[in-house]
């Protein structure tokens, strides 16, 4: 692997990693408030991609839209993706998890429910939208923007990176500065005491799902422009992002960002070294390696009750 190639792959890795980081935040937020691995989050991501696809199919940007129009189309795709993701996540919480929570179901039941919801949603998407991959309609002309250390950066890569970074900074500010953010932190530290202090736990959990859904759905649109849209596209990014959340320390939002970035880079650098078919192995080997030496992730977990 020449140095030029290395930079190319590194750029790709950072781009992919930023997407994983955004998805991983969704996992880690929900894990924080519910101690639940929300396996259906990968379907939130997938439906977000379909949201972007549907909105851009309806609006149908022409062959070479102007720069201003491109910005509008991308914003539309992101908004539609976020909306679909938010609605899916909200519905999931309301339909699948809240009844279980009311009845005090054991944690294993939540997990099985999450897996079942995931199966249901992706098969429904396959039924409604067909089972073949679809390209995301181009919202802009994908051309080279500039060269960094011999690696070409094109519009898609910059868009993905930029949008992901903006979302991450926005989320970090929201969680650390706003009232809802402190509610989320309070519930993840100790839901019972937070409830006694006047935090509306149901509302906080519901909104946490919505926030995770917006991020996941928008990430789905971005990932769709990067690759293709397919009914089972959520599975691999989903488990990689969950692995990223664990690598960074589950419940820890900055840890999720770090872990996502790391696994994205590792996954992409596996390609030139071992070949494309081994790319997903790299991420999981890193996961197991990290957990061997730091059983609670790199930055440590931030969950009040650990069970």
């Amino acid at each position: 692997m020449s140095l030029n190639e290395f930079w190319d792959y590194l750029v790709l890795g950072v781009v992919l990693g930023s997407i994983y980081a955004v998805i991983a935040i969704g996992y880690t937020l929900v894990y924080g408030v519910l101690q639940l691995i929300n396996f259906a989050h990968s379907e939130v991501f997938m439906l977000g991609a379909y949201g972007g696809l549907i909105s851009l199919t309806i609006i149908a940007p022409g062959d070479s839209p102007s720069a201003l129009a491109s910005v509008g189309y991308v914003a539309l795709g992101l908004a539609a993706g976020g909306l679909f993701g938010a609605v899916t996540a909200y519905g999931l919480e309301k339909v699948a998890y809240r009844p279980l929570r009311r009845r005090g179901a054991p944690r294993l039941i939540f997990l099985i429910t999450a897996i079942g919801a995931s199966f249901f949603l992706y098969n429904l998407a396959g039924k409604l939208f067909g089972r073949d991959p679809l390209p995301m309609p181009d919202a802009y002309e994908n051309k080279k923007v500039f060269t960094l250390f011999g690696a070409d950066l094109n519009v898609t890569q910059l868009l993905l990176l930029g949008a992901a970074v903006v979302m991450m900074i926005g989320l970090d500010l929201m969680v650390n500065r706003t009232k809802l953010g402190s509610g989320i932190r309070a519930v993840s530290q100790d839901a019972e005491v937070a409830g006694l202090m006047g935090v509306d736990i149901d509302k906080v959990i519901s909104r946490t799902f919505v926030i995770g859904g917006v991020l996941g759905g928008a990430a789905g649109y971005l990932y769709g422009t990067f690759t293709q849209v397919k009914f089972d596209m959520g599975f691999i990014p989903g488990i990689t992002a969950f692995a990223a959340a664990v690598v960074g320390g589950i419940g820890n939002i900055r840890g999720a960002m770090l872990g996502g970035m790391m696994l994205g880079i590792v996954e992409t650098l596996t390609v030139p070294v071992f070949g494309g078919e081994w790319r997903h192995v790299g991420a999981f080997v890193v996961l197991i390696g990290v957990l061997m030496f730091r059983p609670t992730g790199i930055l440590g977990e931030r969950v009040g009750r650990t069970a």
Binding site: A243, F284, L291
Partner: peptide, 23 residues
């Protein structure tokens, strides 16, 4: 390597192991 892990950490590591075996 996973003896030290608890609960959900074990879940993701075993899931990773599953993916590795599959791939």
């Amino acid at each position: 390597p996973t003896l030290r892990l608890r609960g959900d950490y074990l879940a993701i590591v075993t899931l990773g192991f599953h993916e590795i075996v599959y791939i």
